[in-house]
Design a protein around this nucleic acid. Structure first.
Length: 832
RNA sequence: GCCCCCGUCGCGCAACCGGCAGACGCACGGUGCUCAAACCACCGACAGUGUGGGUUCGAAUCCCACCGGGGGCACCA
């Protein structure tokens, strides 16, 4: 709105011109932007391409404060790079398969797609109004057949390479959701999603062989150091849990039992042998005489929840299996026990127990009165006496050929001996398990495999993809029954075997939604490609992602899986990089009154309400100004009205500067303030110090205000200052920035939008101060300040400082020992 | 239990390599504008950096210990 247009309505032209109504500003510019279509990727010929990615949302309802923060931050990065002239791809899509849609469908008697796509529409419109700089032409939804066709296609490639396989084993089962869970989805013994206590079930399930990539997932983390948060790397490292040691074969009766140990050097100190009570091995080794006792113990163990089992300070329990294991080095016979402190699914489920040097083994030995033999002299006190094991370094004793070696020398030596005898070898063991990917639920990508009595497991041929979910199942049809709802749909299940043409049944499980999200970033590069999951040329142009933005909650799951997928695709020759995300930014949470927002606490802050009260820009500014992006924001500490005030100040400033009579008048103070702000905001935005960037822009606003209100406002300097401010602000407060741009004479409707403007540059000459304040200290205390030229040389400055009256007074006649000169900022006179 | 991060005005946060503790905002006090207020503009006060020690000419910044807060891992052989 221009002052002259409305001037007739009110006599107070100035007030009207200065008015700032955030909602009016939004309504004014949003349709113009839609028309100008400013965020399309791939249109800047010759410009370097950059891919900015926000973790795509799950369509669970409308956007909330968490989305506002994450996407607000991602948008600053995307818009900043656009202003800097990069060809930026900033896409959006939806992780739209998953359980909530299914539960909603059951509750409402409809198909999951209805709820899913209705929510997506709501979120998409909210994103549009929130003014995120998405390229809307690249939308993907993982629940679209055009998308999951390629999820299935990728599954088949994994299958061909032996990276997808089916096996029967005890798996995590969520009794509430009626489905299996991956290890990564079990947190402290509970379902990550619904919090139910997870139980175990013996089932045949599909797995991805992620363990085959364990070393590379670990080793390649060195490429991410510095550009990923340390704690994410640490969490992945812990999760993969690589330990090096040896496999050692023990003879138990007629069979060979292998254990994994990280301390083969302590083999002579083994005094007993333990098998996980719930491992099949324990059952197989058990002597008839011990059978009753063993089974009673095992049943007891099975009754325990994982949580109880994992509490560290439980007394050790176990039962003898009535057999002995023969130590391959010294032929000693060790009693074999079943116990629950040994885990069935780590290592081989059996251990050699060295009580002197392992606390857990020592605890067990003391409970069962078993011998303790020290084989490493660590200088520590005797574990037999103290009850404290000595796991440290030292010299080997009581160990035959190993005596006298240090631990570090004894480990390879032991492995050598074992190898010579054919009873063991060096080994690496991981905590990481293969990724269980099948789910007994409906709303996911069907596993594209057919089971034929004659031919067995038959992959669905590529040209028959996608295997589409039936559209006629709704409401009660989807009720969880312990097997996939798809199993009860005969029309869907019964099919012809692609190999022999005979009757066959489709696999009724669907894929974990983490499979969908492990490659969505690739799909954005060529979202409509119907010849493959992605166009390798497009991927070469855009990938890897230059900046990924999302929450830490995905530190392990999504990020590890995506890294795995990328490495597999690299090995297949489909991509030429091995890490998908060059840089990662984990934004903090928005909390309220010290606690995470939750329905049960009733402390939720409604994003829609906040936007209605303060407008989009004020909320975006409030979020980034509240603190460093990775810190949590307590909404109780945030003042959105303060942000509105500043934005209104900026808008008013623009109107006042726009109304100045045109002139070439310049003001060095204003020019210097502008240059300094540009320099700082550039550096700060670059390093994600968004809160400080805003502070610098506020400072510039204050300086420009002074300039306008001064006796002789310098129109040219002020216009340049406001123009620079508008462009910088465009990354943070897109609507207000456009309003400012428009108020200073830009014809936005014709395409001269601030969002098409170029990031300002600071004149280096203006960054050099004419004089700097030099602090003069005596014995470290500030006694005087001198205004000196920045290029002053040390000896001149020293003379000036020593001549200072204040310094002479402070010295009070004392002799000077040294003078430290750091020209031009500081002189420290040190008296004797 | 082990590992990592963080403690700066009343609050949220700044301070490049060790060099004037305070940029910015909120809240607070005052002045102007106003019949009055809101808005707005201007001015202002307020901490010596969790505690104790050390290194240094000089420490919020580096080192050690402790206290407080947050996070990760946790019978992984």
């Amino acid at each position: 709105m221009s002052g002259t247009e409305r001037g007739a309505v009110m006599t107070e032209t100035t007030n009207e011109r200065e008015a700032y109504d955030p909602h009016a500003v939004q309504d004014r510019w949003l349709p113009v932007w839609d028309r100008l279509d400013l965020n399309r990727a791939g249109l800047r010929a010759g410009a370097e391409k950059r891919f900015v990615l926000d973790m795509f949302p799950y369509p669970s309802g409308d956007l909330h404060m968490g989305h506002a923060e994450a996407f607000g931050i991602g948008d600053v990065v995307a818009r900043y790079w656009m202003r800097r002239g990069y060809d930026v791809m900033h896409p959006i899509g939806w992780d739209s398969f998953g359980l909530p849609a299914e539960n909603a469908a059951i509750a409402r008697g409809e198909h999951p797609a209805a709820w899913t796509y209705a929510n997506i529409d709501v979120q998409a419109e909210s994103f549009r109004r929130y003014a995120v700089s998405f390229d809307w032409t690249r939308r993907v939804h993982t629940s679209d057949p055009a998308y999951y066709r390629w999820t299935q296609w990728l599954f088949l490639r994994f299958l061909e390479r032996g990276l997808a396989y089916r096996k029967n084993s005890a798996v995590n089962w969520c009794p509430k959701d009626q489905t299996v869970l991956a290890n990564e989805q079990v947190v402290a013994g509970k379902c990550e999603r619904c919090g139910s206590e997870v139980t175990k079930r013996e089932l045949t399930q599909w797995y991805f062989r992620i363990t085959e990539y364990a070393d590379r997932l670990l080793d390649d983390m060195k490429d991410l150091e510095g550009s990923w948060p340390d704690r994410v790397l640490l969490m992945q490292k812990n999760w993969i849990g690589r330990s090096t040691g040896a496999h050692v074969d023990f003879q138990v009766g007629s069979r060979k039992v292998t254990v994994f140990t990280t301390r083969p050097d302590t083999l002579y100190g083994a005094t007993f042998f333990v098998v996980a009570a719930d491992a099949p091995l324990a059952d197989e080794l058990c002597e008839p005489s011990q059978r009753a006792a063993f089974e009673a113990y095992r049943d007891e163990v099975r009754m325990l929840s994982d949580i109880d089992r994992q509490s560290t300070d439980r007394p050790k329990t176990g039962v003898s299996l009535g057999v002995t294991a023969i130590n391959p080095l010294n032929g000693e016979e060790l009693p074999v026990f079943a116990a629950d402190y040994v885990l069935a699914d780590y290592g081989t489920g059996a251990i050699m127990a060295v009580p002197a040097h392992d606390q857990r083994d020592l605890d067990f030995a003391r409970a069962f009165d078993l011998p303790v033999r020290v084989v490493v002299d660590t200088g520590g006190e005797d574990p037999t006496v103290t009850g404290i094991a000595t796991p440290g370094d030292g010299v080997l004793v009581n160990s035959g050929p190993l005596d006298g070696l240090t631990k570090d020398a004894a480990i390879p030596r032991t492995i050598e001996i074992l190898q010579e005898r054919g009873t063991g070898e060096g080994a690496v063991n991981y905590r990481l398990r293969d990724w269980l990917l099948s789910r007994q639920r409906f709303w996911g990508a069907p596993i594209p495999v057919v089971h034929c009595e004659g031919c067995g497991e038959v992959p669905v041929p590529d040209d028959q993809l996608p295997v589409v979910l039936p559209s006629d199942m709704k409401g009660a049809d989807l009720q969880p029954k312990g097997q996939s709802p798809l199993a009860s749909n005969d029309d869907w299940v019964n099919t012809d075997c692609p190999t022999c043409g005979g009757p066959a049944k489709r696999d009724t499980d669907t894929m974990d939604t983490f499979v969908d999200s492990s490659w969505y970033f690739l799909r954005y590069c060529s979202p409509d490609d119907d010849t493959g999951p992605f166009d390798p040329d497009a991927v070469r142009e855009w990938m890897p992602v230059a900046q990924y933005v999302g929450g830490v909650e995905h530190a392990i799951l999504h990020l590890l899986y995506s890294r795995f997928f990328t490495k597999v695709l690299h090995d297949m020759g489909l991509v030429d990089f091995t890490e998908p995300f060059t840089a990662l930014l984990n934004q903090g949470q928005v909390i309220n009154q010290g606690k995470a927002m939750s329905k049960s606490l009733g402390n939720g802050v409604d994003l829609g309400g906040q936007l209605a009260s303060y407008g989009v820009d004020a909320i975006r500014i409030s979020i980034v100004f509240a603190g460093p992006p990775e810190d949590d924001i307590d909404w109780a500490d945030v003042s959105p009205s303060g942000s509105v005030k500043w934005l209104a100040r900026v808008a008013r400033l623009a109107a006042d500067v726009g109304a100045l009579p045109a002139s070439d008048a310049r003001d060095e103070t204003v020019d210097r303030a502008t240059a300094r702000a540009i320099d700082d905001v550039t550096r700060l935005t670059e390093s994600h110090r968004f809160n400080v960037s805003i502070a610098r822009m506020m400072e510039l606003t204050n300086a420009l205000r002074k300039g306008v209100d001064g006796a002789a406002p310098a129109a040219a300097s002020l216009r340049d200052g406001v123009s620079a401010l508008a462009t910088m602000l465009s990354c943070y407060a897109p609507y207000t920035a456009e309003e400012v741009w428009s108020r200073t004479g830009h014809d936005v409707e014709s395409g001269d939008s601030v969002h098409a403007s170029t990031w300002p540059t600071a004149d280096p000459a203006l960054l050099v101060e004419e004089t700097v304040t030099c602090v003069v200290q005596v014995a470290g205390k500030v006694r005087d300040r001198l205004e000196v030229p920045p290029a002053i040389d040390e000896s001149t400055l020293r003379e000036l400082a020593l001549a200072s009256e204040a310094v002479v007074r402070a010295l009070n006649g004392a002799d000077v020992r040294t003078v430290i000169v750091r020209a031009p900022k500081l002189v420290n006179v040190v008296p004797v």
